[in-house]
Design a binder for these strands. Structure first.
Lengths: 340, 340
DNA sequence: AGCGCTCTCTGAACCGGTTCAGTAGATATA
DNA sequence: TATATCTACTGAACCGGTTCAGAGAGCGCT
């Protein structure tokens, strides 16, 4: 049926071992013999059997990604598909595959990693959505699975991180709004249990105090449209209603913008709005959204590269990606006169 | 190190073969011996080595999904993440894994399937985004990979399909608009090379002629926000400007709605709009979007079930999922007076 | 010539399961 | 009692690679 290394050995008149050495570019065969073996293998149309390779070399030639999200909300996050696509661009070049697991709960997430480990499905994993005190680090350490994290967790981690600073973009958003005369700039953040939820809030806080402003209007939301709406409603109800809101992602910003408009407010005349992610839709909203582009494609590509080089035995060193720059569109404008 | 079937055999005082039979619930060992072997295996903490199983049983215990999309646009489609989550809910129950491939081009897509086949990474695949004359069917047939398709392709296909009728929802949208007095109802469709792009257009056409209306305002777009905007602009420029537009997905509808609003039109007073997908954001737009919920989670779950039972040797039979029903929100309203 | 060394290659073990042919013993059949 | 049948199990081959110990051949050096 399919041609095996045995067939090649027989056809070339050498032993299995010699064929293995020749095909893997290892020493142990002369150049002449190597050429001959390769030629025979080519003629016979031999292709390596990944399963056999996996068994004997104890490698899976695959990396894993466990996505812990409410499945119903997973579709709302534009980050993952693009991130996965980025991972793939690297993997295909190295004949690796991506094994994807979706987990609905924290338990399921842990089980996901445990299954990947127990079945040796993967040689390493990429950790996204790092949490402030992330139990996965200890888990993976105990499971002895190499990993790469997106951004460096606060917990001490033995795994290399691929870092993309999101504070600069948020700070730029604050500065941009301040330059437009805003002083009451609110922030609708993501869950503060996530390091990116927290770092964006801190970035907003720091930029605010740097500008001599009080960072008082903060609402912790959950990155969903529903959460964005609720947080916006709360901010707009408050006595010192903000004239601008910085959202931790585009989805919440869009929901907030729509909500504000439904109240009769005009964006940006009555309320300025910024997002984070720069989803495709952001450009096509009315008004188009001022936002900070995440670059999930690049992030995925580099994270996968990082993981593969870690698997190849390279020392674990963090990689820093360029900080994304604020993209100014029409959802931000001068502070309203009456609010001065 | 890890405990193998050999260790169990030795500890139980039987042969490897007996252990294998016992662990797999196969005949060939007495109940007493089986019990004893299972007990020993449990005590020793034996877990099957998937790689060895894969090699000897020639199965991968994984299914594949090749997503062919421009990676940069992948994030805009809320379908995939939820669909994948649905697949996962089935797979975890059966100890199967999902191998995901992202392909940017048609060539890459074919390569994706070929690689999965050559490496025997998967035991079967799920085909989404069926095209009118879909080359993947012949490809998979030649590669001898079992498959399940989303909806039945027009090409004759040996693979079972999981069908979810989208025509009913579109027809309902037309009827809904007709009942509101609209007569000029346009359609912004997806690429007509996709069967779901085409079937939605046909559903619109049929419903229109059923209502005695002319289905003349059709623009073929590409499911992206940019495409939705361009198509909307074209429709609104036309002499017989439609008073309502049915979009083939929410993303285009949202972009269209924003564009219309940016022209100073009011939705739905000047223009009614419907989408397709019922993304989370649809509820939180201003106005909230009338749309047809796709149920990617269910679709994924059933497709995976279908594939697994196919792999288990069940005969290939199509499955029909309930047709999604139109969800009416505030983006549709009575036809404008002056347009009567 | 004798020794050691390197280079090339072989044969077999090994990874951890599955599966099949064969056998011993118990049971049924005539 | 002799024979056929069945059950329960063993031993070995097998899946398709990797890897290691060791055998010869060829070479240089003293």
């Amino acid at each position: 049926m399919t041609v095996t290394i045995n067939d090649v050995a027989q056809a070339a008149g050498v032993s299995k071992g010699a064929v293995s050495y020749a095909l893997n570019g290892q020493p142990g065969v002369s150049d002449d013999t190597r050429e001959r073996i390769l030629k025979v293998a080519r003629e016979l149309g031999w292709t390596p059997n990944l399963r056999a390779k996996s068994l004997s070399s104890a490698k899976a030639f695959a990396v894993g990604l466990v996505v812990a999200r409410d499945p119903r909300l997973l579709g709302t996050d534009p980050f993952f598909p693009a991130f996965i696509a980025g991972i793939e661009t690297t993997l295909v070049e190295h004949e690796y595959a991506l094994v994807l697991t979706v987990a609905a709960s924290a338990d399921a997430e842990e089980m996901g990693y445990r299954k990947l480990a127990a079945d040796s499905r993967v040689d390493g994993v990429i950790l996204t959505d790092m949490r402030v005190d992330d139990s996965r680090i200890a888990l993976l350490k105990s499971l002895k699975i190499p990993a790469v994290t997106l951004n460096r967790p606060e917990t001490s981690s033995p795994f290399p991180a691929v870092c993309m600073d999101d504070t600069e973009g948020i700070a730029a958003a604050v500065e941009h709004l301040v330059s437009l005369g805003h002083t009451r700039i609110g922030h609708v953040g993501g869950p503060q249990s996530y390091i990116h939820g927290r770092s964006r809030r801190l970035a907003w806080q720091n930029a605010m105090s740097k500008a001599g402003l009080e960072a008082s209007s903060f609402i912790e939301a959950d990155f969903t449209a529903a959460g964005g709406l609720a947080a916006t409603a709360e901010l707009l109800r408050s006595a010192q209603r903000p004239t601008a809101i910085i959202y931790a992602n585009d989805l919440m910003a869009t929901a907030g913008q729509s909500y504000a408009q439904s109240l009769g407010l005009t964006v940006p005349d009555d309320l300025s709005i910024t997002g984070y992610d720069d989803t495709e839709l952001a450009t096509y909203l009315n008004p188009p959204l001022t936002t900070v582009p995440a670059d999930p494609l690049l992030w995925g590509r580099v994270a996968a590269q990082q993981l593969l080089s870690l698997l190849g035995g390279a020392p674990a060193a963090d990689v820093y990606l360029p900080s994304p720059k604020l993209v100014v569109r029409a959802s931000t404008g001068p502070v309203p006169q009456h609010a001065e």
